[in-house]
Computed example of a mutant assay.
Amino acid sequence: MTATDWNTDIYAQAALEDRSANRQRVNIPATLRPSGSPGFQTVILDLGLGGFCANALQHLAPGNRCWLTLPGMQSLQAEVVWWDAGRVGCAFTNLLSPMVHDNILARYRGDGPFRRV
């Protein structure tokens, strides 16, 4: 593997590592929009730097692109990894920064500078 190959593949390697990273259980209202479809209201059940799990009554096929929108934030692009019995697991296209992750958790736990509305 050359240095160039490693740099090109750095996200793929990091994403694999972060699939096993700790995820925080949450209960965050959000909108999930699958590619080519209208968005729907959902609840994020867990959140990590590399992805999330949410309620999704409609079947979402693995490999499909989607966008997650949390209140007050821009949409985050992700890819469906799995769907099972009304839940979907997705991997973010770009890892969340630890600061963004911590701010989201603080906002919805109510222990940070943000307050739940």
Rank of each mutant, 00 (worst) to 15 (best):
Q41E: 15
P62I: 05
G50I: 02
V100N: 04
Y11V: 00
G89L: 04
T8Y: 08
C90L: 08
Q58E: 14
A85H: 09
P29K: 09
E79S: 06
I28T: 10
I28L: 11
Q13M: 03
L70E: 12
G50F: 01
A85F: 06
L105S: 07
D111F: 01
V88N: 01
R23G: 10
L68P: 10
W83M: 02
L96C: 05
G89T: 01
F52W: 02
R116F: 10
G86Y: 05
A56L: 05
L105D: 09
R109E: 14
R23C: 12
T31Y: 11
D18H: 01
V81K: 03
F40R: 13
R87Y: 02
F40G: 14
E79G: 02
W83C: 01
Y11C: 00
I10H: 01
E79I: 06
A21Q: 07
V100A: 11
A78W: 03
D18E: 10
A61R: 06
Q77E: 15
T42D: 13
G50D: 05
R87L: 06
L105W: 06
T4L: 15
H59W: 07
D18P: 00
D102W: 02
N64F: 07
T93V: 08
G51I: 01
T69P: 06
N94C: 02
D102N: 12
T42V: 15
M99W: 01
L60C: 09
V80E: 10
A78M: 08
G86V: 06
Y108W: 14
A30V: 12
D18R: 01
L16I: 04
Q41W: 07
L60S: 02
I104K: 07
R23H: 09
R25C: 04
A3E: 15
T42L: 14
L16H: 02
D102M: 10
L68N: 09
A21F: 06
I104P: 12
V26L: 05
L70F: 09
A3G: 14
G48L: 08
C53T: 05
Q58R: 10
P34K: 08
G112H: 05
P38G: 08
T2Q: 13
D9C: 05
G51M: 03
A91Q: 07
A21W: 02
L105R: 06
L70G: 11
A21T: 03
P34D: 15
T2P: 11
G39W: 07
L96P: 04
P113Q: 13
S75L: 05
L68G: 10
F52A: 10
R116V: 14
D5E: 15
N55G: 07
R87C: 00
L68I: 11
L60D: 04
T8S: 09
N55E: 14
Q24I: 12
A14E: 03
L105P: 06
G89Y: 02
L57A: 15
M99K: 03
D46Y: 01
